[in-house]
Nucleic acid binder design. Structure first.
Lengths: 114, 114
DNA sequence: TCTCTTTGCATAGACGAACTATGGGAGTGG
DNA sequence: CCACTCCCATAGTTCGTCTATGCAAAGAGA
């Protein structure tokens, strides 16, 4: 084997996962699987949220008090854990949005110079 | 001590440092200190490149063959290591630019939905 | 001359987010 | 009953960035 395949890591810009989750939940409460689907769909399959990234992120956000979780039954009659934003979570979404736009704006300024 | 101060990590979007360095070097060969200054200046002080991030990144890029290094004398008569892009480095810049714009485009699509 | 600031390079270790790999359970359709 | 999709979760690894620290030499000022 001649190692033709380079690892395809870094599927999404690190540091943006929590923001994407917060944004998704700001539309409506959703379970983990649904969150991943929603982001993938809206991004036209560009962003793929791995389960091994998603659930630890949701745990962190629970601990920080940004979301609340509740076991319910999904549209497909399976038990699922629905997450909803708290007030702190909504604030955090604002913080992350403005920081992201500041950062990406700064990066673009650097990248646009001739 | 009551731990009032939260750590201020994540100053720049992770995963973009190498791209910013490549872009900077595509303008002209530069030494490490100059690269950091250039990025900070162009980003209007928003992006700060820590030395502990910069030099390891340059080492990685040397190993990957994206840059070449040469000891010279800086404008201030100090010895400094000047880095310049290789052909592979220029290609890599293109790759990273297009991937970045694809990613940030996808993120913005998700973030812009009502 | 001595010391301080700025310029400049570099590494070790900590840290944390995201990934890989893996496991299980419970409905649905053939 | 078997495969498939849905849905949750964690252990362990990997990797990039940060903190902290060290060295060294030029120039300014006292």
């Amino acid at each position: 084997m001649t190692n033709t395949k380079t690892k395809n890591r870094n599927e999404l810009l690190p540091g943006t996962l929590e923001m994407l989750i917060l944004k998704t939940l700001s539309i409506e409460p959703m379970h983990g699987y649904g969150i991943a689907q929603h982001i993938q769909l809206l991004s036209a399959q560009v962003l793929t949220i791995e389960e091994g990234s998603l659930y630890p992120a949701l745990q962190r956000m629970l601990i920080k008090g940004w979301v609340l979780a509740e076991w319910k039954i999904s549209a497909n009659h399976r038990r699922a854990r629905f997450y909803k934003l708290t007030t702190a979570g909504k604030n955090q979404l604002g913080v992350q949005e403005s920081r992201f736009s500041q950062m990406s704006g700064a990066i673009m300024r650097v990248m646009k110079t001739t």
